[in-house]
Write a protein that binds this DNA or RNA. Structure first.
Lengths: 226, 226, 226, 226
DNA sequence: CATGAATGAGACTTCATTCAT
DNA sequence: TATGAATGAAGTCTCATTCAT
């Protein structure tokens, strides 16, 4: 994964990978049917880690003392934002994972066979979306959001977040596209569009960010930041 | 472009391209320095066509009779939505163009050298964004939107639209992600987040869609739909 | 010829040549059967110019006043040295010619078909050698040189000169091989080996060099040196 | 090496080489970075073998009984001639090596990058020249040769030999240039020019040739001559 | 269980030559 | 007489995959 993230897919050859792992070329073929299978396994690992990240977010939110006084609906909304935040912050927490995920989502049919994508990656992602949807639904049920299709809304926040990530990548090439506030502003805009006040939106978001900021990092990242 | 769009980059080899064009391999090198140059030229063509689409949208809006009674601010907002609609509808109007654009935006550093991207594609795209920003600014100045950073808002609508397009592609693989209403709902949510009423948002959007629906199509598409 | 000399055989392509000449590619094929024929024509031009150089050297020697008091044998020997000097100085007087000649002699069977070499280049070169041989013969007949096979001697001075030129080229890469005196010392050694005194050898050589120094130059060279 | 020598550089393609070796094309790239590296390795092999030839010549000279009565200066001179003889006889002893060496010396800047030439081939060649120079110096110190610049003289014999080899190649195309005595006569002429008598020169040369005649041959050549 | 040499199809690119205009 | 677009064989190099050891 490091190889892909640091030097691009072009550098991801079997020979290079084997040498980087300290194995012989042939050895890889004992464990994987071919290059595609390796890539697919990598993707799976990313998605599984993302699932654990979500669980961790939920766990932290549940055990966090600061939100004791929040009503159930608000808590649900913050929970949705934590999940979204876990997704959005992937690029900071696990850059290699983020790169891999972005590529396979942004460029389906090129990198991975559709079947692999459909079988391995999309279902978990859908699970995550379902999680967000249920939270948004609860928030709406408790009047924190205006009534609306929660499934659709979960798709919207995900799409909006994905779009922000895409543009963020362009920001590295042309700085006109670099705007670190893009994601919070995007989320705030959507929340307000769905009926919260500006103050609420900002409050929910800052609470969620407080949780997300403590999500576990890739070990290398943790060390680097220390 | 058809080759890339229909069979993917993996099928886009010089030999294949030449045979598809009815030329010999060497002939391509009279006109292009290499494969990269061909790809870059393709990208340029896409962006340039997109610029013409924008101009056409603005033209149609200006000459359209139905909006006579709209105040200046609303007209500006509809103008912004027309531009966004031109971008969003690219996949329907020119599928090959859309595929190419999506790939080069979604996967920078892989397909095209950064310089090509930075020099040829991003500047026009930025121009389009500037156009949207000025419209949004006018809308805010006339009280149609709450005051806010117009440049940031233009980035937001673009990002949100881009995210919708990404998810739409996944919808072809797993139908759970397929939701034809995603884009209008996204735009409506953002507009309401920025201060319009639900009725206004829907009204503006339907007016914009009326214009976008008449934007010129790829000839092949026009024929197919006829 | 300039193209070959300045940028090497690798740059000598039909397309490049045509563009340099201001002609179209096809035009060259009206005048030459193919690339080989062009190269052969170039070689011919070199050899013919060398023949004119020889004639000019002989002419200058004949009309030169300073050698009035020289006996016939010495004059013949100086004549031979003038011819050799014309050959040796080709690299200074006509660098492009020298490069071409050196390659076709140093690397037969690669650049030109044997037949071309045998038919076009070697005969004139042999004529030049015969000229040198007759001079050396006269010198020996008049006692300036010890008796000996003049044909063989002409081959020796030519070979020795050719070797000096080869090493001179290496001198451009590694300066240990660069020694500007190599040729005069070589000739002096041979002359002394054939029976002249050191003083005679030096005298003959300086007389010959006086003549060679006025041999005509490539126009470009003449301008540059002026 | 056989391929180059027998069919020329034009036939030396990767595909041809691989098929000749009984390997697949790709296999060559496990051992060499590219075609240039293969050529460079070939050159190195030639030069290294030449170094061994020189050492062998010196060894044979030292252990040879027949020269017991030679004075030190004469022995040194014979040593120089043995070295030169090793170089001159390369074409007979190892035709393929000779062809390769001749081309890379005769046509620098075309075949091999200058750096390769400068780094790999010229230094050993220079070492050989230094060897000859020291012998010639000793000879002059002991009065066998007239005093003179030994380094220059070593360059001269090398250049003269190189020139003879060049002309010898032409002799295969036009027999007028074929003269098997050219090298001994060249060496004799130079030695006499540097102060030996004709008898001495011939004696030294025949002693050297006696040694050179036993220098090791390419196995294939040995078999053929047997 | 691991090795790594070998495979060979296929990628991009070059360039001498042709030929309709 | 000249043009120059087009040809297509041939060149170098890459890399996923195999298989005897």
């Amino acid at each position: 994964m490091r190889l892909v993230a640091e030097e691009g897919y072009q550098a991801f050859t079997i020979a290079r990978l084997a040498s980087e792992l300290g194995y012989a070329v042939g050895a890889l073929y004992r464990y994987f049917k071919g290059k595609d299978a390796i890539l697919a396994a990598l993707e799976m690992r990313v998605v599984e880690q993302l699932q654990r990240d979500f669980a961790e977010g939920e766990q932290r939110l549940a055990t966090h003392q600061g939100h004791a006084k929040l009503d159930e609906g608000s808590l649900a909304l913050v929970g949705a934002l934590v999940a979204i935040g876990a997704y959005e912050s992937l690029g900071r927490r696990r850059p290699t994972h983020a790169k891999l995920l972005a590529t396979s989502l942004g460029d389906p049919r090129e990198l991975l066979a559709d079947e692999v994508l459909a079988a391995g990656i999309l279902p978990p992602l859908q699970g995550l979306l379902g999680h967000v949807a249920s939270k948004l639904d609860a928030a709406a049920k408790h009047g924190v959001l205006r009534p609306g299709d929660a499934g659709e809304r979960s798709l919207l926040v995900w799409a909006a977040t994905q779009g922000v990530l895409t543009i963020r990548k362009l920001g590295r090439i042309r700085e006109d596209f670099a705007n670190p506030n893009l994601h919070p502003v995007m989320i705030t805009s959507l929340l307000m569009g769905w009926g919260t006040s500006a103050e609420q939106a900002v409050d929910f978001l800052s609470r969620a960010n407080g949780i997300v900021g403590f999500l576990s990092l890739e070990s290398g990242v943790a060390i680097a930041e220390a």
